[in-house]
Amino acid sequence: MEKDNILEIKNLHVTFYTEDGIVRALQGVEYEVKHNETLGVVGESGCGKSVTSLTIMRLLPKPQAKVEEGQILFRDKETGQEINLLELPEEKMRHVRGNRISMIFQEPMTALNPVYTVGDQIMEAILIHNPETTRQEARKKAIEMLKLVGIPAAEKRVDDYPHQMSGGMRQRVMIAMALSTNPDILIADEPTTALDVTIQAQILDLINRLQEQLGMSIILITHNLGVVAQNADRIAVMYLGRIVEYAPVREIFHDPKHPYTQGLLQSVPRLDRGGLKEPLPGISGNLPSPYNPPPGCKFHPRCPYVMDRCREEEPSAVEISPGHTVRCWLHVKGEKSNE
């Protein structure tokens, strides 16, 4: 594990065995998260961006999902030890989950338990990971966290039930809960997708501020390219269970190499450029069914540069410049073609 990494995912393969068939949800996913940086994970539905984070948390649905291969290495900040989360006994994993690595989700409306007050739910997270803390201390800490995430009248709101709060407020509560244990990593899975634009801006601003203030690494999962452009240091672009491109944020947005990344960027109308009713180049075709993925490169049926080789053989990841890898035959040097 490299020194400034806190998390490394290596060759992760996850398969779902469902009634409708087998889905190879992750096929050789690899990424790393550095200390205090934000990694953006971008992709459309079924690309595996959320499955990856659930694998890190070891919260995959049982018994359908199975980790077939791979390692998730995590550096424990206190001991400096490297641990493979996939091999950790459940008992020990629980001390990582919600404590060293926390997670917030897309739906703030349903992610909080309706029958307990928000204070109870934050305190629960504090108490489970700090057994020596008293309830009074935990309550004080919960109020402090609510203040930190910008909830007005926190002393009063701590006794509110989730339904008494707006969507934006609930997402703040989720953040307060996730950060109440001072985690090393925060996984934010589409944290602003369900929110209004102005509230989205508030929440992203809050997450950035807290990252600076508290110091933590963030894995920001989203389908919205705009959200990662201004909030992430590096980006992993996923398509059908693979990371097709992985690079520092500027390279992804200014010099995308994979045709899928290029297409994705050309799919969104821009506030900063582009004329009225100009056609968007975008990507043709539909997302393939995860039950029945195409052979060869998974993107080839929609790729404008498709070659014969793409239809038969799947490219592996190639590092084309330091820290910038692409899975595409266009970027594999002829003689160096691997395996």
């Binding site: 948390m57 919260l59 629980r94 001390h95 990582v96 989950r97 919600g98 404590n99 926390s102 997670m103 989700f105 739906e107 349903t110 992610a111 909080l112 338990n113 309706p114 629960e124 997270a125 489970i128 990971h129 989720m174 809960m177």
Partner: peptide, 11 residues
């Protein structure tokens, strides 16, 4: 979703 949240807390 809140069950997933509860698990993600480490309970």
């Amino acid at each position: 979703d809140y069950i997933r949240t509860a698990r993600a807390k480490g309970l």
